[in-house]
């Protein structure tokens, strides 16, 4: 198992490198030197201080150097000291801005993944076992509709419904009294009460796909010879389905994390903008609009890295569930 994990991490490294490169490329994208933007923002009143400060910054980020040197400065500062650079709009280190928001984004993504799995597992199993029943057609249709509704639209509709019929505004993740309060049981509970709309909205995006995967896998497995073997043993039908085909259909299902996690995080970004959640989305959007590129680049870097880690975790879970993978009996997927 350890060897498998080590190999898996090794394969991840080039991707990690590419992600950091892409993030840095994005930082460099806006035309002109970002210091110009920065200087313009500082105004003329403290021009002298600014000039010194600018020179220091130029040194710090190696702005006059070629791309690869700048990249090296940037990435080595992140890796060694957790220094993501400076946010010019907020005039604070990026690291002081992103962690809270990234944590909440990941929390939302994880809760949504679990919720999505739970729903997709139930519906997928039901529709496969009852293939061609009315329920099967109904859920398949619902899945298609779920796939067709952009999640920001769903968020808007749910917001409207709760505004119209429950008379409450559903923006944000915390009630005002907990907004700036330190973490406590009460705050956690408050968070979970606010989370259901974003979780439902985010999960819907991935659920349609995962339901189909679960259904197709289970349909495959239901006709495999080993189910007949189990039936020939005299097992009860439902127990047999739960122990063999469902168990085997679960593996490709788990591996869907690889592609659902990026989708879910994408969904989270948009939904959090619509619902104005204190997560990555609104801040990233704002940073991009104001070309606060270190902040934006760091968000993108970290979102990519966290997605990779999520995928890695799901691969490890998969290897643990399916002994064939560790022994390398399953070809590269």
């Amino acid at each position: 198992m350890l060897r498998y994990i080590a190999r898996r991490v090794l394969v991840m490294l080039p991707t990690l490198f590419l992600i950091s490169l892409a993030s840095f490329f994005i930082i460099q994208l806006p035309p002109g030197d970002f210091l110009t933007t920065y200087a313009a923002g500082m105004g003329a009143q403290d021009a002298i201080v600014a000039r010194e400060h600018l020179a220091a910054l130029e040194e710090r980020y190696g702005l006059n150097q070629p791309f690869h040197v700048q990249y090296w400065q940037w990435i080595s500062n992140i890796v060694c000291c957790g220094d993501f650079g400076q946010s010019f709009e907020w005039r604070r280190p990026v690291s002081s801005l992103i962690w809270d928001r990234l944590t909440l984004t990941m929390l939302l993504a994880v809760v949504s993944t679990l919720f999505m799995w739970f729903v997709a597992f139930l519906i997928g199993t039901y529709t496969a076992v009852r293939q061609y029943s009315i329920g099967d057609y109904f859920w398949t249709f619902v899945g298609f509709v779920g796939l067709a509704i952009p999640n920001f639209l769903l968020a808007l509709v749910l917001m409207y419904i709760s505004f119209r019929y429950f008379g409450q505004s559903v923006g944000g993740l915390f009630s005002p009294e907990y907004q700036n309060a330190p973490w406590s049981i009460g705050k956690l509970w408050d968070l979970f009460q606010h989370m259901w709309i974003p979780v439902i909205v985010i999960a819907t995006a991935g659920a349609a796909g995962t339901i189909r995967i679960m259904r197709a896998n289970l349909l495959d497995e239901l006709h495999r010879p080993y189910t007949t073997t189990a039936r020939a043993k005299g097992m009860q039908e439902w127990r047999l389905i739960a122990k063999y085909p469902v168990r085997l259909a679960l593996n490709p299902f788990i591996s869907t994390v690889g592609w659902t996690l990026p989708t879910l995080i994408s969904g989270e970004i948009i939904v959090s903008v619509v619902l104005d959640l204190p997560t990555t989305g609104p801040l990233l959007l704002r940073a991009l609009r104001s070309q606060d590129m270190y902040l934006a680049g760091s968000f993108i870097l970290m979102l990519g890295v966290l997605t990779l880690i999520g995928t890695l975790l799901s691969d490890i879970l998969l290897a643990w569930l399916d002994p064939r993978i560790q022994y390398d009996k399953v070809g590269s997927r």
């Binding site: 590419l18 892409a22 994005i26 806006p30 990026p262 994408s266 969904g267 990233l284 991009l288």
Partner: peptide, 21 residues
């Protein structure tokens, strides 16, 4: 590897960054 890399980045933030630029 390139495909894996492109698919591992959440696409909306990537698109957002590119369009914003």
């Amino acid at each position: 590897r390139v495909i894996e890399f492109l698919r591992s980045i959440p696409e909306i933030p990537l698109w957002m960054a590119l369009t914003a630029a």
